[in-house]
Design a protein around this nucleic acid. Structure first.
Lengths: 110, 110
DNA sequence: CCATAATATCCACATAATAGACAATATAGG
DNA sequence: CCTATATTGTCTATTATGTGGATATTATGG
């Protein structure tokens, strides 16, 4: 494959998070979930840039939401994972699994 | 964590491959192993650039080898994984595992 | 209306990924 | 010896990803 056909590290994280959250996840929500689950705190701009790239690649799709009963804020952009996104996750997972087959990281002599 | 403290996607692949191959792996060997195990064919330049980056970060170390009985070639640069390299792999693995907890990619409605 | 909360977007820059051409060096065989 | 060739690393340029901060937008509460 050529450049740009694999999920980058953060793309992988964001895409898995969109899948976890289910259809309708939006930027700020994705950011919060990443923080909750992984102990890292990406900037909101980083999350949006990545979602936009994933959308350009056809791995997620998005639509603008209606205002809700909450305090306020600019209209949310909601995301859902697409079939190609699921495939990309499978490919990434398989690659890592194959490379790790037979290796236990907790039992390495260094 | 801040910028640059995570393994990039290809860094992850290369680092796992160095671990698989054990101490003494070198560029061309790493490249061949990636090809064998994952069906992708990175350019040799890509592999070397990545190994160099991993070394700068202290995740692997290297030394120049002596000529062997084989045909010829420039002296090999051999690599071994360092303790920090193993830690980085553990962190990356844990992050992905947490995000995937409870999700089966083979059972997703899209 | 105004203050403030919630959200997205824009912009600039740093780091990672990648390919391809090139250089180096060893051995084999005449 | 000398040359052809195999094997490997090095250099360079370019594109893709990752990152954070500042700014814009929009809704609600008072």
């Amino acid at each position: 494959m050529a450049k740009g056909e694999y999920l980058g590290e953060f793309e992988h994280v964001v895409l898995l998070t969109v899948l976890r959250l289910g259809d309708g996840a939006y930027g700020a929500m994705v950011r919060a979930e990443i923080e909750r689950v992984t102990d890292r705190s990406p900037a909101i701009g980083a999350v949006h840039a990545t979602l936009e790239r994933l959308e350009r690649k056809g791995l997620v799709s998005s639509w603008i939401g209606k205002p809700t009963a909450e305090r306020g804020g600019k209209a949310k952009r909601h995301f859902k994972i697409e079939a190609d996104g699921v495939s990309a996750l499978k490919t990434a997972q398989k690659t890592l699994q194959r490379l790790q087959a037979g290796l236990s990281l907790w039992n390495v002599a260094v």
